[in-house]
Simulated scan of single mutants.
Amino acid sequence: MATALIEANRAGLSNDKDTLYLLGGVALMVFGAGLILSNPMIRRYMSQLGVGNLAQTVIPDVERYFKLRSM
């Protein structure tokens, strides 16, 4: 039984490694987007496009969502 599991991992049939790569990639994308959006010039450009300050716009909706969820 144990040798079959070891052979399956050697053959590349492990889903754990694929899941780890997927979650690592998502984490890197979120981190990169945070770095880009923390730049003042990018925020100024986004406000000129009409997005404004996204955090101030979204926070009341998130608070309302958590209030409704806690009921």
Rank of each mutant, 00 (worst) to 15 (best):
R10T: 07
L35G: 15
F31L: 13
V51R: 07
Q48P: 09
G50I: 15
G32K: 04
Y45K: 11
R43A: 08
R43D: 05
K17A: 12
G25P: 10
G12R: 01
G34F: 08
G34Y: 09
F31E: 12
G24Q: 15
L37A: 08
R43K: 07
L49Y: 15
T19L: 11
G32R: 04
E7P: 01
G32P: 03
Q48D: 12
R43V: 06
M41Y: 13
L20P: 04
L22I: 02
L28D: 11
I42Q: 11
R10S: 08
I36E: 07
A33D: 06
G24F: 14
I36Y: 10
L13I: 01
G50A: 14
I42E: 13
A27D: 05
I42F: 11
S14Q: 04
A8I: 03
L35E: 15
Y21G: 06
M46W: 11
P40A: 13
R10N: 05
M29T: 14
Y21D: 03
R10M: 04
D16L: 03
V51H: 09
E7I: 09
L28V: 14
L35R: 15
D16Y: 09
L20A: 09
Y21H: 10
L20G: 02
S47Y: 05
G12F: 00
S14I: 02
A8Y: 01
V26Q: 15
L20V: 00
P40Y: 14
N9C: 04
V51Q: 11
Q48K: 13
L37M: 10
I36L: 13
K17G: 02
G50Y: 14
